[in-house]
């Protein structure tokens, strides 16, 4: 089966300037386990477009680096 690279607008964005290296608070809280730490940068990012836009990731972030938007299809 073909592997296709496709650009996707993901609802959760994390400001790498603010994100604390290797902190996993947002990653731990996501009910869908859609966030991960990028091993190269140590910063959190959304690695699958699976989101209930529920908000614990943003609420738990101690530095306000996490923004939850509405998925594009619903926006």
């Amino acid at each position: 089966m073909a592997l296709v690279t496709q650009r996707t607008d993901v609802p959760v964005t994390i400001d790498p300037e603010l994100c604390i290296d290797n902190c996993t608070l947002c990653v731990d809280m996501c009910p869908l386990d859609s966030l991960a730490i990028d091993p190269a940068s140590g910063k959190a990012y959304m690695y699958v477009d699976e989101c209930w836009y529920c908000g614990p990731c943003a609420a738990r972030c101690p530095v306000g680096a996490v923004t939850v938007n509405i998925p594009l299809l619903l926006r």
């Binding site: 809280m29 009910p31 869908l32 209930w52 529920c54 614990p56 609420a59």
Partner: peptide
């Protein structure tokens, strides 16, 4: 998920 924010309550 994680008990701290899991279930239909989540938030």
């Amino acid at each position: 998920a994680h008990v701290r924010h899991s279930g239909s309550l989540a938030m």
